[in-house]
Amino acid sequence: MRSWTKACCALAVIGLTACSASPTGRNQLLLFSSQDMTSLGDQSFSQMKQEVPINQDAKTNAYVQCVANAITRQIPKQSGFDNWEVVVFNSDEVNAFALPGGKIGVYSGLLKVAVNEDQLATVLGHEVSHVLANHSNERLSQTQLANVGMQITDVAIGSTQYAQYKEATMAALGLGVQYGVILPYGRSQESEADIVGLELMAKAGFDPKQSIELWKNMDKASGGGQPPELLSTHPSHNTRIKDLTAKIQSMPAFSTPRPNCGSA
C-alpha cells in the first residue's frame, strides 16, 4: 500500500473514532486507548523512580500522601488502573506532575512555594486534571497526526516501541527525556487544568482562595522572569489569577469536611 493511501486510511479512522470532548467541552483528538496511556505512564514512572532520588522523610511523605488522597477520593474510578501512586522526589524543582495510569510525582522543592495544604492541593488538583482531561493522549495524538506518513495503526505502544518513540511519548506525558525536566502543556490545556483542578480541590474540602496565593508565590519564586504570555505556552501568572478568581466567584460551596493533613 502506498504511503499516501496509508495516510488517507489513517485519517479516515481518525475521523470516525478519535473525536472526543474535554471536561470543559473543548474538542480533542485521542488516538490511543486508556490501556496504551496507562502502559506509558507506568513505564515512565518506573524509570523515574530508578533514576531520580526519592524522598524518604516520613513526615513529608505522609503530608503529601494525605493531600493527594483527599484529591483522588473525589475522582470516579478510572479505566486502566485502580489506585493512585504518589512519590515525593528529592529535587529543587518547583513542580509536580501526574501521569496516565494514576502516577503522581511531587518534587520536594514545590513544598517551599506551595506553603500549606490548600496550595499543595491546588497543584495536585491541577496535575491530576491533566490526566482526567486526557491531555497526554491529546498531545501524543497530535504528534502522531503530524507524522501521518507513518502507518498509524502500526504504532502500538508496547515495551518494544516505547524505546523507539521515547522522546515523543515523554514529551506527551509532560516529561523531558532528561528526567526532572517538566515540559509545558499547551496554553489551552493549562487553563483547562487550572479550572478543573480548582473545582476538584474545592470538592475535596480545601480553600480555593489559596490558589490565588499559590500563584502569587509562584510569581515571586520566578523572580518576575516569566516570558511574555504570547511567547509562552503557559498562561501568565496574572491571567491565571484573573481566571481563577472568576471561577471561585461562580463556584458553589461544597460541604466536604476540610482535610487535616498538617504541614511538611
Rank of each mutant, 00 (worst) to 15 (best):
77 K>A: 09
53 P>G: 07
59 K>N: 12
201 M>Q: 12
111 L>Q: 05
209 K>H: 15
63 Y>G: 00
135 H>S: 08
228 P>M: 01
118 D>V: 03
10 A>N: 14
84 W>I: 01
43 Q>K: 06
222 S>A: 12
191 S>F: 12
75 I>T: 03
235 P>L: 11
36 D>L: 13
204 A>S: 11
9 C>M: 12
67 V>D: 00
219 D>G: 02
261 C>A: 04
6 K>D: 05
219 D>R: 09
10 A>S: 13
11 L>C: 04
73 R>H: 02
237 H>D: 01
130 H>L: 09
185 Y>E: 00
142 Q>M: 12
48 M>E: 06
54 I>Q: 06
194 D>F: 14
32 F>E: 11
21 A>T: 14
85 E>A: 02
253 A>T: 07
179 Y>A: 03
214 L>F: 13
239 T>K: 13
38 T>S: 15
36 D>E: 08
168 A>Q: 09
8 C>P: 07
20 S>Q: 10
175 L>R: 04
129 S>E: 10
56 Q>V: 11
41 G>S: 12
51 E>P: 00
225 G>V: 07
177 V>F: 14
208 P>T: 04
149 G>P: 00
204 A>Y: 15
115 V>M: 10
46 S>P: 00
154 D>I: 00
151 Q>Y: 00
156 A>N: 03
156 A>Y: 06
154 D>Q: 02
130 H>F: 03
45 F>R: 06
69 N>H: 01
221 A>C: 05
82 D>G: 04
204 A>L: 09
131 V>R: 15
51 E>K: 15
110 L>Y: 08
251 M>T: 05
243 D>R: 14
91 S>N: 05
50 Q>T: 06
52 V>I: 13
107 Y>S: 02
6 K>R: 14
117 E>M: 09
200 L>R: 13
147 N>S: 01
203 K>A: 07
90 N>D: 06
46 S>C: 03
120 L>F: 08
85 E>P: 01
177 V>I: 06
213 E>K: 14
154 D>Y: 02
21 A>H: 15
171 A>V: 08
187 R>C: 03
52 V>R: 01
15 G>C: 05
175 L>P: 06
64 V>A: 02
19 C>H: 08
100 P>T: 06
203 K>F: 09
103 K>S: 14
233 T>Q: 07
23 P>A: 11
25 G>R: 12
91 S>I: 07
31 L>C: 12
217 N>E: 09
81 F>L: 03
49 K>M: 02
94 V>P: 13
163 A>Y: 09
169 T>G: 06
257 P>H: 10
61 N>Q: 05
174 G>W: 11
213 E>R: 11
259 P>M: 00
243 D>N: 12
65 Q>G: 00
66 C>A: 00
245 T>L: 04
184 P>M: 12
86 V>E: 08
56 Q>R: 13
101 G>C: 06
248 I>K: 01
130 H>A: 11
194 D>V: 04
179 Y>V: 04
232 S>A: 08
100 P>N: 08
118 D>L: 00
233 T>A: 11
7 A>D: 10
22 S>G: 14
114 A>N: 02
244 L>A: 02
38 T>A: 15
38 T>Q: 11
73 R>Y: 05
244 L>V: 04
64 V>T: 04
165 Y>M: 10
234 H>S: 05
108 S>K: 08
202 A>T: 15
135 H>G: 05
32 F>L: 14
